[in-house]
Design a protein around this nucleic acid. Structure first.
Lengths: 154, 154
DNA sequence: CGATCATTGATGACGCGTCAATAAAAATCT
DNA sequence: AGATTTTTATTGACGCGTCATCAATGATCG
């Protein structure tokens, strides 16, 4: 059923560049977050949506939904982050099953401390070296590939 | 020193698409490797270079070099893979510090079992939906960004 | 040659994420 | 209403990767 045809030279090289780029980019951004605010990438990802709400509170389900994460993953990380003082867990008044995640002052300070350098790094490492045409192509390509994947997984 | 300017709407969206695509792609490929040959992505990555050598043997240092991995990471994974029977560790005759990693028959069977479907999935999810122009743009873009990163980290 | 430094690899501790199981509450069905 | 199913969150076990540490060997320099 599957054709045993391997990737050709260009394909292998491009595929490797794609993966390497992501690794390098992740590594660089992660290192910077750690240096600037003592945050891991995942912790930063949790803090950002919280800091965008007026009260700094989100229901765990929503937070997990925005991040595209498993309930378990979020629960584990929130527990660790609670111990470090970045968030606090509260009961949900509307739904007794639910759990609310609240940004603490320390959490807000950390994310606000990290955000500017983080944006700047994304610009420096990703956006600045690219032309307008290239950015348009990337937008079209990424969206199309995501679309194909979603269609296929469904 | 850092301008506090956040990313604009297009930039945020493109950046998110970039990360989401990588996650989805990784997830899909990893799931397939696991299904086809019971291998994790990292295990597959280790087996591939080994299977490309005539004897199926590589020195740990070289293997780690090709993969761009930490010594520790490779050592841990090789230990687990040895326990599962995919590789075997041997002493290095030329350098008594060194350690050789040898592909076992089971390891070769696993990687040869997984490879065709893996290539096919990469084609289906990544290469097939893209035009020749887009692929050229991606090649240029990824190479340039990797170059910038390497230059900056140095 | 001998002292010092660099390289290679293994290991333990630790934080992380996935999976399976559990518990509790809400929604749904009869 | 009562039974069943679905949703929400937590927990424990486990494999994984990073970091710091260690041991052993090789390379370098005086």
């Amino acid at each position: 059923m599957a054709r045993p045809r391997p990737l050709d030279e260009h394909q292998r090289s491009l595929w490797k560049a794609y993966r390497d780029l992501y690794q390098e980019l992740s590594g660089a951004l992660h290192a910077q977050l750690l240096h600037d605010a003592g945050l891991s990438g995942s912790e930063y990802a949790v803090l950002v949506p919280l800091s965008h709400t007026p009260d700094g509170v989100l229901r765990a389900r929503e937070l997990g939904g925005e991040l595209g994460w498993d309930r378990s993953r979020l629960s584990h990380l929130v527990r660790r982050m609670e111990k470090r003082g970045f968030v606090a867990r509260e009961e949900c008044s509307e739904d007794a099953r639910g759990s609310m995640v609240r940004l603490t002052d320390a959490g807000r300070a950390a994310v606000e401390d990290a955000a500017p350098e983080h944006s700047e790094a994304i610009r420096r490492y990703f956006f600045n070296p690219l032309s307008r045409d290239e950015l348009e192509t990337l937008t079209a390509v990424f969206d199309r590939l995501l679309d194909h994947l979603a269609r296929d997984q469904a």
